[in-house]
Design a protein around this nucleic acid. Structure first.
Lengths: 238, 238
DNA sequence: TGGAATTAGTGAACGGTGTTCACTAAATGA
DNA sequence: TCATTTAGTGAACACCGTTCACTAATTCCA
């Protein structure tokens, strides 16, 4: 299929036709990104997308097999950004604890920056019927962006154990899963319950979002330490 | 409106007509619950519901203002169960740490028992445009089931501080929010990523779901302690 | 350059969705 | 018994994702 010049594998200038095709494709994705960022899946319809780029609805199906396929691409590119964010944060020259906090904060901040993307990426509920324990293999997960981000966390746990601040008896993979779950929970609660860090009986109990993220990061860090460094994981009196 | 006998406020035997009405209403809710539990929002359509109870689609609108209203009722009654679950767990006669673990485990277990309900209850993404910091007040939250469950957690933190096992310098409300976020994250990751506790590079690193929940609960408990009781928060070597 | 073959793009349709509304028929209240 | 309220309906509206025969433009090759 398409036995064109098979040497140029992914060059930007393939052919005028191909470039035009990519331009239209991008314009679809751009429009989709624009709408989805603002209104989420509810506001994103093929017809509206077609309207926005002045094509007929059917045209979109020459570029994407289905709406889901298009959406997957949006989510995927978001997760790539999320991954690189946490990856970069883990490579800074900061001292260990600050680096961990940075990773945590960047992850959550990036997630709530595009709430629809993050929420949609964890929205499908697989049916619990069949025995699908085996159908998710490690290789598959490891190569995904989620998997890469997860490995960054594993690396941080290992590093903490090597320098003696984290308890060495934790399995770094299992500990990383706990950390990830915690980050995930904070991100989603911030997304779905606006004012979650603020909502408290007396106003002075409230924290702003950034402060709450830091508080939670401190708690998480503390939970892995051999002995809690300082009893106050920052900012819990403001 | 409806100036009927205004003394009998909520008695089960109101009138034959009223009872018939409630029966039909329940049959709608039952069918909805049945379908929703199995297939979630995707499988639940007004027309299918009408089909299932042998009425016309329009009939349902004599009982519920909209599909969302119907769905809200499903979610609400689920959250009532979830609330009572955690409430009961917090009132057992177990020693403190076991009680905390029990609350945590029951919450997550109940959540993943009905994954569609739990996930749907946290699915709306409010638009981040306006300044709606003030539109969520504490009273409103406190009287909701979420709020009640939250207060149980606050109570546990306070108890831990009073008996001296939790660091007293934590604000119990903020700490409870962190705990809640963590529980939430574990529940949702278990829902959306089947095999999440298992997925690891070598098979012997994996935990089953219950074991992972316990591990995470241990970590959380540890994070609030004045000093980590024991370096192994249970089951992390399996 | 001319003709064949591929491709981009379209309009109309299909089956689905939530919701409304004028309408009938039955139950209720006086 | 008769007026009034109510339960329930069928048809329609405006959307949705998707398909398909079709045209028009482009590309390829002789």
């Amino acid at each position: 299929m398409k036995g064109a010049p098979l040497d140029t594998d992914n060059l930007p200038e393939e052919s005028p036709a191909e470039r035009r095709r990519q331009r239209v494709r991008s314009s679809i994705l751009d429009a989709a990104e624009r709408v989805f960022s603002k209104e989420g899946e509810a506001g994103l319809s093929i017809r509206r997308l077609a309207d926005e780029i002045d094509y007929s609805p059917a045209a979109i199906y020459k570029y994407f097999g289905s709406k889901d396929e298009l959406l997957d691409e949006l989510k995927e590119s978001f997760f790539e950004r999320l991954m690189s964010t946490i990856d970069k944060a883990s490579l800074t020259a900061l001292p260990f604890e600050a680096r961990v906090r940075q990773c945590f904060a960047r992850y959550v901040e990036t997630a709530i920056e595009r709430p629809h993307h993050y929420a949609a990426a964890f929205s499908s509920v697989p049916d619990t019927s069949a025995a699908h324990l085996a159908d998710i293999c490690w290789e598959e997960f490891e190569t995904s962006h989620k998997g890469q981000a997860f490995m960054v966390v594993v690396g941080l746990v290992r590093e903490g154990q090597e320098i003696g601040v984290f308890d060495a008896s934790f399995d770094p993979f299992i500990a990383a899963k706990s950390l990830w779950a915690s980050m995930h929970g904070v991100a989603l609660l911030l997304i779905h319950l606006p004012g979650f860090p603020v909502i408290l009986p007396t106003p002075d109990h409230g924290l702003n979002t950034a402060a709450f993220i830091q508080f939670h990061a401190g708690l998480l860090f503390r939970s892995l330490c051999v002995a809690p460094s300082s009893p106050e994981p920052s900012g819990h009196t403001l």
